[in-house]
Design a protein around this nucleic acid. Structure first.
Lengths: 243, 243
DNA sequence: CGAGTCATTGATGAACTTCAAAGGGAGTGG
DNA sequence: CCACTCCCTTTGAAGTTCATCAATGACTCG
């Protein structure tokens, strides 16, 4: 993708928080113009990361949280025995890196699943600014609360639900997050592999693949490699066990 | 338990944050004496809750977080179809109720597993005070970060680990939390039922019971109903797959 | 003391994993 | 630009673990 039209390019480093089309999804919600400018001052916009590049690694010192501007990331933690557990996928407008807040060390790693850009928000300065701007403090509490709620929903999913329910839930989650970003909720490209989906959902690659095949045979979804189309949203929701 | 000795009774409502023996585990960490007094002013100490009484219920308006002072709580969420998922157990010194911060509605319920007391911390006033006391703001960010980290470790456990690993991990978690509170890390009474453990760990009652029996037969633990003794800590850790 | 909940144990079966093999796609280097 | 390679994906067959069903025993609390 070329960046001939800076204003519209997703990887453009120059757009500030006030102009960012992700603003309504990201940290600035509920801030007024002056407050957004203050937030903007502490945000660092980095160069794009290529697929496979790390944003941070487990055990590194924690210094900042990151807002995804374009692309997508996978967060995962590595156990002593070397096995990995995917703890989340992050799409544009979402905040990652909060795992390091408690111990000041990251307890997970984050890697780009495709060419991606982020806004880096140094945590120390975010804390300072939060003290001065109650709406920013509230917003950040809210974002952390969201992460907690999301993780607890994942616990329910992993504890109780079948393979089909898990995979269907993931597709619905991505669909809904795309919808919020004004992208198609029914057609999208998965930036993660079957193995990564399986790891995240507590399943093997083979099981994920089989679920995809079954859902396709039932004409609930259409799948072509990583391209997914949701053909029957109602049925997909019933498979996922949500209303 | 009678409260003839108010200073030492766990259910005593009069002890303030500065004198509370749980202080070093709870919110006040990292606050100085004057700051603790300010925190103390917003904390409400309630009457004891009996076993089975709810602290808050799913879908209720969120107004406060709670620090456990004595006893223990179970947090759980209920799906549309009526099934419940336990999302956590909370012991003295731990904070619960943060699930409501993002949407201002509780998305889980909390029930006392035995006679228990809590300190209620109205969230609005906590936010205000956090703006004024950077160390309190930092501490609360840290507590929320802890909750995130804990939930993500649970995700790994549910996604990858066998029944034995899950149950062993829970026992080790309780052991270590008891240890921090200067209680025996090797002998304790479980305040939750096998069904609640199973629900939390994504297992059935029967499986939990069988794991307990197997661990007892291998002389890793001793179990008499809800009384547990860890006989071989090293072996329990190896069963749980931790170092 | 009795009723009901909670815990244990056994037998059976289903869901998912593991092992195995072969068929695409994307990217690279000749 | 094509061919090669590697990784990702799909599909099949066999094996495990845990859930389900069922029955009995133990504890707790009115």
């Amino acid at each position: 993708m070329s960046c001939a039209e800076p204003k519209r390019c997703h990887h453009n480093q120059l757009v500030n928080c006030g102009d960012c089309r992700l603003g309504p999804l990201c940290l600035p919600i509920a801030l007024n113009t002056a407050e957004i400018d203050q937030l903007d001052d502490i945000v660092k916009r980095g160069r794009p990361l290529g697929k496979g590049e790390h944003l941070f690694r487990q055990a590194e010192a924690f210094g900042a949280v990151y807002a995804v501007r374009s692309g997508s990331f996978k967060a995962y933690s590595t156990s002593d025995d070397g096995t990995e557990q995917v703890t989340g996928f992050y799409l544009p407008g979402e905040i990652l890196g909060m795992d390091g807040i408690s111990s000041l060390k990251h307890c997970s790693s984050a890697v780009a699943l495709e060419t991606s850009t982020v806004c880096e928000i140094p945590f120390g300065r975010l804390e300072e600014l939060s003290s001065q701007l109650p709406s920013l403090q509230r917003r950040f509490f809210q974002i952390m609360g969201n992460e907690i709620t999301k993780d607890q929903q994942m616990l329910t999913l992993l504890g109780k639900n079948s393979a089909e329910e898990r995979v269907a839930s993931l597709l619905l989650s991505i669909s809904s997050r795309n919808h919020h970003r004004n992208l198609s909720p029914t057609r999208f490209r998965l930036s993660m592999s079957r193995a990564e989906i399986g790891n995240y959902m507590g399943l093997t690659v083979e099981t994920v693949s089989r679920v995809f095949s079954r859902l396709q045979k039932q004409e609930v979804i259409g799948v072509d490699n990583r391209e997914v189309e949701i053909l029957d949203m109602a049925k997909l929701k019933s498979v996922a066990n949500v209303t």
